[in-house]
Design a protein around this nucleic acid. Structure first.
Lengths: 247, 247
DNA sequence: AAATTAGGTTACAATTTTGTGACAATTGAA
DNA sequence: TTCAATTGTCACAAAATTGTAACCTAATTT
């Protein structure tokens, strides 16, 4: 159950310490030393939680938090702020800026982990019952139905029949379209995070979902991101442009 | 349609317990450990109901309740307060602050769920007595009768005889046609949520209802949604079967 | 190019879910 | 009381879904 935590902390020693403890608890740390790096990382890996040092070089912590909250893609990511000491002002402005919790230095690893887990546990349910439409596919959770426009011009709809897991998979991917999820993340969020299921099983379900979508001429909507996972995308084709290589 | 319940409770164990039971009842819990978090959560996900521990760290429970009542956006959200013991003062001040109900610890999960549903039901308008017609079936709640058009073209009506439960089931499903309900939801809404009845019993009643409808040539009106529940639908065919198209 | 790795595809047995008929308990009316 | 109607549950049948292994192809590395 790999949960990614972005650690935004300028002091290497603390960054190291936090990283170590996160790993030990089965969380996957990703580090950034300042707001710019953090922004890049957020776009790259889309963490499940952000640990944010309030006292960043240019006091840009608040700004970074606000930035996360403004972007719909990152809006729901919980933020825990690290403060040198609880100053009331900090606390207030932190909560105003959208922090979900705060923890004061120095803190024990146990406490840190406990807070993280607490925040993750109260994660808001990110899937709603809204009708979602993208790439010529419409999914209606309350009616539990999936439709597709047969061609781009007509308004003609066909219903598609999906199995329970395929339905949830499609719903999740569509609710987070354009975002890439690893197999493990998909297992966590769609199957539930206690299950003991092979990662490769996701491939099979993706395959089944694709098969159904292909039948109605909707190809390339569920895309593979090699080395990472899958995503639902109606905006871009999978073209070479998008990978950033560094060889 | 998923109903969100904000659980404001500082003790993790109880929070966990409540969460678990809410989920089991088809409600979507969202947790907060104190008033600040709760405020954030309220703004994030406008919950349908708030379960509020009265004994929060800074005795801020009352204040939080008042705060909800002051804001027009949150004014109508029902609040159930959790109290360690019934102290008259608590009760009074709680109700003064705008709580809709209170429940004393320790409480049984069953009781908790029952209270929640009771409070929620007060706000959900009951299904009306209007005559509903769909899929060639007409149901008249006041006269307690069901008719069916024998074929699509004629206006010829036949009366269908249904047992009490079958009638209510059909009425409920028709009043919310196209919408999928889980067995548990159907039990809650049709049988009443205090009853202790197996989920599978719903299947049997569905079967009985179907049997009657089949007799008058009304098939596929009550549809199964695998992994979820049932629905009344007259708008779409469920199975675009392989070989045969109709006209 | 060979080796290695990641992902696609298929088949299938195990499991889950739903359909169905029977039955005993209950109710209410005659 | 007796009878018929209705109800909830169970057991088994039927059907759909699911996870995995095995094998294959494409991509990447050595």
């Amino acid at each position: 159950m790999s949960i990614t935590v972005l650690v935004v902390e300028d002091e290497p020693a603390i960054q190291e310490l936090i990283s170590y403890n996160l790993k030990k608890s089965g969380l996957a740390p990703v580090c950034a030393a300042n707001a710019e790096q953090a922004t890049v990382m957020v776009n790259n890996v889309l963490p499940d939680l952000v640990l944010l040092d309030w006292m960043l070089p240019n006091s840009s912590g608040i700004e970074f938090a606000r930035q996360l909250r403004r972007n719909s893609r990152t809006q729901a990511i919980p933020i825990i702020m690290l403060t040198a000491k609880v100053e009331l002002d900090d606390k207030i402005s932190g909560l105003e800026a959208g922090a979900d919790d705060y923890i004061t230095k120095p803190f024990s690893p146990r406490e840190l982990i406990a807070r993280i887990k607490a925040v993750l546990r109260r994660r808001v349910p990110e899937i709603s019952d809204e009708i979602i439409e993208a790439g010529g596919v419409k999914i209606d959770p309350t009616k539990h139905r999936v439709f597709a426009y047969l061609n781009d011009t007509s308004a003609e709809l066909t219903e598609v029949k999906l199995g329970p897991t395929e339905f949830r998979l499609l719903h999740f991917l569509m609710a987070h379209k354009e975002r890439v999820y690893t197999r493990t993340q998909l297992l966590d969020r769609i199957w539930g995070d206690h299950v003991f299921i092979e990662d490769r099983t996701v491939d099979v379900h993706i395959r089944r979902l694709r098969k159904v979508l292909e039948k109605i001429g909707k190809e390339d909507l569920v895309q593979t991101v090699r080395g990472t996972g899958y995503r639902f995308s109606s905006e871009y084709e999978m073209n070479p442009e998008e990978e950033h290589q560094q060889s």
